[in-house]
Simulated scan of single mutants.
Amino acid sequence: MKIKLFIVEDSLVIRSILKRMFQDESDIEVIGEASKVKDAIEGISSLNPDVVTLDVILPDGSGLDVLKKFSNSGIPFIMLSSSTTEGAQVTVDALNYGAFDYVPKINPPLGLINVREELLKKIKAAYLAKGKIRVKPCLECLPFKKPVVKVEKRIANKAVAIIASTGAPPQIRKIVSELDSNFDASLIIVQHMPIGFTKVFAESLNTVCPFPISEAEEGQSLFVNAGIVAKGGFHLRIKSDKSIYLDGKTEAYFGLRPAGDMTLETLAPVFREKLLVIIMTGMGSDGTNGAKIVKSFGGKVYVEDEASCVVFGMPGSVIRANLHDKVVSLSEIPNAIMEFVGN
């Protein structure tokens, strides 16, 4: 059976490139296309595709306007995003609304050829995840002004690291919104995102978390009652004095930079048994090699259960390697984190 694909893209040239890209794929069929919000909504409603690729910026609105109309449809959307500030903001908003994933447009239109394999992989993964329950967008999930919590400039003796990828952004927002303001540890989030996107994602988390969350900066210390998001385009490393080193020289790890494994190999020897790692939804196996190192230093490794995951790749890899201490559902993760921090 072929995957029925609908393309939403305002550029005729890019639409043509995308259609040619899929011509040789025996398991993908482009059943429709649109260049505007109105036409996209009508086309998706009438054709009921399996997967939609969605341009972030459209002539009469944004991809978010389309996504909102189908938030309860079970149809997975893959955002095609520019690296502009506006493109990054809309993409992160779309992920928070439940978009399956995104693929950055690098030097379009011809640069799309370079992300062909990534796009094909995500379309096929999205098809397999079609209809899977994800965090539903609601008023409580959207940005709001929170009480300002004074940051205690005390170096953390404990750390909690979240390693995540496909389907995780709205889940991470839910988790951090349920953490206590008295968080006697440092929170480190490695979400697979490129340069520009991680800053917007960190700002998004900062609106719902009871303590400050920011994009990681060179030389920044790991404080209690504070969280950081690994910066896109760099591997996040931790020095022995618990300060941050942004590694832009080491090559992408299995195509990823930041990669969770790279962070865990430096976090583990610093925090040892006072480190908790949560491996969440995502394709591939990032976190498995790092989990082995964490375990060797006495740290704990929890994985998100299959029922909660949009894609069970990363947690499943850790389980198959028998490197996990506990399997937790999405709803259990905040309490699991606070129990570790409080003990």
Score class of each variant (00 low, 15 high):
residue 287 G to N: 02
residue 49 P to D: 00
residue 268 A to W: 09
residue 16 S to I: 03
residue 38 K to P: 03
residue 343 N to G: 01
residue 104 P to D: 00
residue 108 P to F: 01
residue 7 I to E: 04
residue 293 I to G: 13
residue 321 A to Y: 06
residue 227 G to A: 00
residue 52 V to D: 07
residue 221 S to G: 04
residue 127 Y to C: 03
residue 167 G to L: 06
residue 118 E to C: 02
residue 105 K to S: 01
residue 113 I to N: 15
residue 321 A to F: 05
residue 127 Y to W: 13
residue 138 C to N: 09
residue 281 T to H: 14
residue 226 A to E: 13
residue 260 G to C: 00
residue 12 L to P: 04
residue 197 F to Y: 12
residue 225 N to R: 05
residue 155 I to Y: 01
residue 130 K to F: 00
residue 287 G to F: 05
residue 213 I to M: 03
residue 209 C to P: 06
residue 227 G to K: 00
residue 85 T to C: 02
residue 54 L to W: 04
residue 11 S to P: 05
residue 156 A to E: 01
residue 151 V to L: 14
residue 293 I to N: 11
residue 216 A to Y: 09
residue 118 E to R: 10
residue 196 G to W: 06
residue 211 F to E: 02
residue 237 R to F: 10
residue 286 D to Y: 01
residue 122 K to L: 04
residue 187 L to H: 03
residue 289 N to K: 15
residue 199 K to R: 10
residue 164 A to I: 05
residue 319 I to N: 01
residue 243 S to V: 01
residue 50 D to F: 09
residue 9 E to D: 13
residue 26 S to K: 15
residue 48 N to D: 13
residue 38 K to L: 14
residue 82 S to L: 01
residue 342 G to A: 13
residue 156 A to Q: 01
residue 192 H to T: 10
residue 306 E to S: 09
residue 32 G to P: 11
residue 16 S to E: 12
residue 27 D to P: 03
residue 228 I to Y: 09
residue 333 I to K: 06
residue 161 A to W: 11
residue 27 D to L: 00
residue 18 L to R: 05
residue 296 S to M: 12
residue 49 P to L: 04
residue 18 L to M: 06
residue 326 K to C: 05
residue 131 G to Q: 03
residue 65 D to P: 04
residue 304 E to D: 02
residue 113 I to S: 15
residue 275 L to D: 11
residue 61 G to R: 05
residue 312 F to K: 03
residue 264 L to N: 12
